[in-house]
Computed example of a mutant assay.
Amino acid sequence: MSTTTVTAMHSSQPPIIPKDFSAKQPQTIRLYPLSNYTFGTKETQPEEDPSVLARLKRLEEHYVQHGMRRTCEGILVCHEHNHPHVLMLQIANAFFKLPGDYLLHEDDEIEGFKKRLNERLAPVGSQFSGEGVNEDWEIGDTLAQWWRPNFETFMYPFLPGHVTRPKECKKLYFIQLPKTKVLSVPKNMKLLAVPLFELYDNSVRYGPQLSAIPHLLSRYNFEFVDENDNVVAATPGTGEGQNPRTKVLAGDDGQDQGMTDYPGENAENGGQGGQ
């Protein structure tokens, strides 16, 4: 269905169609509704480091043995009320991060990344069966690279000119979710679906990396489909009469949460995005 048709469906007057404005545009991305996915929990995955200092110390040890650490994280996108939502982990009701982690030094980039995604989100045992359980990850474009120049918490979306030996490079990849998929989150974490407008310009709550995601995704046009695979909206264009909110999908207390509304921007400002 064309953008023109979708726009006309939501307007009492025919729109004025401008001259084509799609030059050098990436392929339009199809987003499936949040209700297409199944969410569950699995065994707790404790954090490797008890403190920030311990994490930086382990980074230093890795650098001495293997050189710059490679970290991969995924931007997984679906939609709710025809608005893009990013799947995100929350730890201890405060710390937000994208699915993924650092690669083992001997791992291939993409295969090692898929292994890390499975550690965080793949179902285990016979918890679930059927369609969407063993779907492979479709790793898309690299959307950003963040650099850690020193053994410090600060990372930058550029490599400072005086730095010739960065200690870590973190890459963020776009991951287009298939039509259906089963995801399980460790019990000590929450899996959230966070709308783009909640992330935008909200570095106080989510940190500079996560709050930049709406900028990274702005290069794409999206088409939104319903549970029956019908296109119901497309960008440019919006849904009507809905107020998307962050959803708690699973985790944190050992019980599945369904798709519970989460206070999001109305909650206390204690959380920070991953560094």
Rank of each mutant, 00 (worst) to 15 (best):
P15D: 12
P15Y: 13
P15N: 11
I16C: 05
I16F: 04
I16E: 09
I17V: 12
I17H: 03
I17P: 01
I17K: 02
I17G: 01
P18L: 02
P18H: 00
P18E: 01
K19Q: 13
K19N: 11
K19C: 07
D20N: 10
D20P: 00
D20A: 13
D20I: 03
D20E: 12
D20W: 10
F21Y: 03
F21V: 02
F21I: 02
F21L: 04
F21C: 03
F21Q: 04
A23H: 14
A23F: 14
A23T: 11
K24V: 10
K24P: 01
K24H: 12
Q25V: 15
Q25K: 15
P26T: 06
P26S: 06
P26M: 07
P26R: 10
Q27M: 09
Q27G: 06
Q27N: 09
Q27W: 04
Q27T: 12
Q27H: 10
Q27L: 10
Q27E: 13
Q27S: 11
T28W: 10
T28V: 14
T28M: 15
I29Y: 08
I29P: 07
I29G: 07
I29A: 11
I29D: 05
I29R: 14
I29M: 15
I29S: 09
I29T: 10
R30M: 08
R30N: 06
R30D: 05
L31A: 11
Y32Q: 11
Y32G: 08
Y32L: 11
Y32C: 12
Y32K: 07
P33Y: 02
P33S: 06
P33A: 05
P33C: 06
L34N: 04
L34Q: 06
S35D: 15
S35R: 13
S35L: 14
S35C: 14
N36C: 13
N36Q: 14
N36A: 13
N36H: 14
N36V: 08
N36I: 08
N36S: 15
N36W: 09
Y37N: 04
Y37W: 11
Y37M: 04
Y37R: 03
T38G: 05
T38W: 04
T38Y: 05
T38N: 09
T38K: 10
T38L: 07
F39P: 02
F39I: 04
F39R: 02
F39A: 04
G40R: 08
G40E: 07
G40H: 07
T41H: 13
T41S: 15
T41M: 11
K42D: 05
K42S: 08
K42P: 03
K42G: 06
K42I: 04
E43A: 08
E43T: 04
E43M: 03
E43N: 05
E43L: 04
T44F: 00
T44N: 10
T44M: 10
Q45M: 14
Q45S: 12
Q45H: 09
Q45F: 09
P46S: 06
P46N: 07
P46E: 09
P46D: 07
E47Q: 02
E47H: 01
E47N: 02
E47F: 02
E47V: 01
E48D: 00
E48C: 00
E48V: 00
E48I: 01
E48N: 00
D49P: 00
D49T: 00
